[in-house]
Design a protein around this nucleic acid. Structure first.
Length: 385
DNA sequence: CGCACCGGGTTCTGCCATCTGC
DNA sequence: GCAGATGGCAGAACCCGGTGCG
């Protein structure tokens, strides 16, 4: 029932858009009555004329809907060679779920294959997603963000199996919600692929002498929601690389992977190697030992995410601002903040005569709100004295 | 109240390569 | 040979605030 006004909105909204498409001749009735054309079931999906390589009514519909046809065709040209597509129904379906016209246009522009799905398929898939999400709005938000995650697979059975499989890992419904919301591609993976990754994680656990591989895999997935959309090759290589670098026991490596190191598994291999090398070089040039680097990686693994240029410039700013390397090693979280923020705070604090040796550097690692409150209070204290 | 510790949020998608089935 | 389905890759921080403790 909402479909009719919805369609009308769609038409009104896009009436002003140009109907022609480059290199395709649209007959002169273009502006005559677009409503009748789009609503007429008999006129849609007519076979292309002998010399026409494209489905003209498809192009017309997409233009009316505000789809970026050039982008769409470039992405999935095969869709444009099909004689039957389902753009009107798909658009109505999405609109019925609360998607705006511009969201629908964006979805189809970025993932044109969406319009080859049937309503039955979409209804079923939506219901499966509804097992995880509370509202249609949430799902629409994900689709708008990543249309491919929802539409790439036509295999609803696989999705169902995935939900079942992930549930058997001991993930709670809250975990599943976070997983699907954060890394929706996980659910379009084949169950086989997801199982392979879980098996790899369990193997890694066993290799390190762990006795509870299931718990290990579950903990890693909960702490790194992206791990299931990584390749097993990448995860394996990262584990091997970090294991080879540190001098820790297997037991210690195991505990770290299961905890704060889970986040480093999805670095690209080259990136991890480069950042690790750079960190090692930099520390060595400042006279630190490998053990210091190890301790830093243990306490603040995210440092491996910082590229050479960024890391070096942050370090330089801090050291130039009067912070010692020893202080940074004690509070590596200051590296979380951008060089710009750090520099600005250093200047502000230095001009006030802030004594980092006495007061420490925790003030650099504070949310803006807390930092500002602190500054205000410090100023007041100054007046009091 | 101030502080330290810790985990969470953001959006990590969009493109290309390979395989599979027709 | 095709189009669809699926796998895999590059890129590479910054910020916030709850909670529990002294």
């Amino acid at each position: 029932m909402a479909a009719v006004p919805g369609l009308r909105n769609l038409l009104t909204f896009h009436r002003s858009l140009k109907l022609q498409c480059r290199s395709v001749l649209i007959p002169s009735f273009s502006y005559e009555n677009p409503v009748r054309k789009l609503c007429s079931s008999s006129e849609k999906n007519v076979e292309p004329q002998p010399q026409s390589p494209q489905n003209e009514s498809l192009l017309e519909n997409l233009n009316l809907m505000g789809v970026d046809v050039r982008m769409a065709r470039q992405r999935q040209p095969g869709v444009f060679r099909k004689s039957f597509t389902n753009e009107r129904d798909v658009a109505q379906f999405l609109q019925g779920k609360g998607a705006s016209l511009s969201e629908i246009a964006g979805i189809i522009s970025r993932y044109p294959r969406a319009i080859t799905r049937s309503i039955e398929h979409l209804e079923q898939r939506w219901e499966l997603w509804k097992n995880i999400f509370e509202t249609d709005e949430e799902i629409v938000r994900i689709l708008d963000r990543s249309p491919e995650s929802f539409f790439r697979s036509s295999d609803n059975g696989n999705l169902e199996k995935n939900l079942a499989f992930l549930s058997t890992l001991g993930l709670t419904s809250k975990d599943l919600h976070r997983l699907l919301a954060t890394a929706p591609r996980t659910f379009s993976n084949s169950v086989k692929l997801n199982k392979l990754m879980v098996e790899l994680l369990e193997d890694i656990c066993a290799e390190l002498g762990g006795t509870n591989p299931e718990q290990f895999a579950k903990d890693i997935i909960c702490r790194n929601l992206y791990v299931l959309i990584r390749s097993t090759k990448r995860v394996r290589a990262n584990v091997d690389l970090i294991k080879a670098y540190v001098t820790l026991s297997d037991e210690e490596v195991l505990a770290l992977l299961q905890g704060r190191w889970a986040c480093i598994l999805d670095l690209s291999n080259e990136c991890m190697r480069r950042n690790l090398n750079n960190l090692h070089q930099m520390m060595a040039s400042l006279g630190f030992q490998k053990a210091d680097v190890e301790n830093l990686i243990i306490s603040y693994p995210k440092i491996l995410y910082i590229g050479p240029d960024t890391l070096n410039s942050k370090m330089e700013s801090l050291l130039k601002g009067g912070i010692t390397m020893q202080q940074i090693l004690e509070k590596p979280k200051v590296l979380d903040y951008s060089e710009k923020t750090l520099t600005a705070r250093l200047m502000q604090l230095t001009s006030m005569g802030y004594d980092f040796q006495r007061m420490g550097i925790s003030i650099l690692d504070m949310s803006k709100k807390r930092f500002d409150a602190k500054m205000k209070k410090n100023l007041l204290d100054c007046y009091d004295e």
